[in-house]
Amino acid sequence: MQNDQLALAQTRGSVDPRVKRPLPAWVSTTALLLPTYGWLTIAIFLPLLTMLAFSFMSATPMGKTPVEFTLKQYRAFIDQPYLLRIGFNSLMMGFWTTLFCAILGFLAAVALVRATVGKTRETLLVLILLPFWTNGLVRVFSWTMVLRENGFLDNILHMVVPDAGSISILYTRYAVVLGLVHGYLPYMILTCYIALVTIDDAIIEAAASLGARWWTILYKILIPMAAPGLISGAVLIFIPVIGSFMEPRILGGRVGVTMGTVIEDQFTQAFNWPLGASLSFTLLAVVLAIFATFSGVLRGRTAG
């Protein structure tokens, strides 16, 4: 009975004159893909190419000054040595942020996997990841409330020690790193958690019952298992951190001068777009080099 209907439907399908001959598959595939990639071309790829072109110009092509082809924008690091120091500071800011995130995040992932189960674990994961998807600017702003002179931290301190001075660290590099760690820690917890959640409890119990101490378990089992998570977390944190500009601006004040803020200045204050473009491309080169180095690990993550 069913088969009859199926056969009927099939014949109807092929005979029915209203049914047009199907278009070749590549036509519909192209039609499905074109809007997305057309949009990305206008919004991402053409802008990056234009910026590359601008980085070889001698001046912003807006006024009357003639614009020539030049490589001088890329010599900025030699011509203006202070840029080297700023670049180094940015890398250090990325290094410390990534390191603190790695230590705190790895331990949090271990605690999640080993000390929680079921609903509690799910709730904790949601709570940890929730701030990550809220406005980063607002979270940085809230640190100024905590760190400022006579702010939350000072008040807590004065409750304990009434006549102590201020321990405000606002407008220091510590504040910048603290704000960045706060912003990116959930990333590291997530990548480490994904790597560790596959560990079979039996392995750790077996190790423990065979007399392994906790540090042996840590170095021989947990860290090697978490390594892909640690690496991809580190890459995904280091890259946005070295390009950050609002965190150093708001929490660092005068000492918060980084590659990010220098680039921002070229576009919003100094109006030197070619220099901004060449600095942006130098930063992009660093980013791409990092991705190329770790692409194997990152691909393993997305495939698994």
């Binding site: 802008p47 070295i242 950050s244 990010g260 473009a277 942006s280 930063l283």
Partner: peptide
């Protein structure tokens, strides 16, 4: 980084 995409 959005700084790069944004300025581009």
């Amino acid at each position: 980084p959005w700084l790069i995409t944004g300025t581009a």
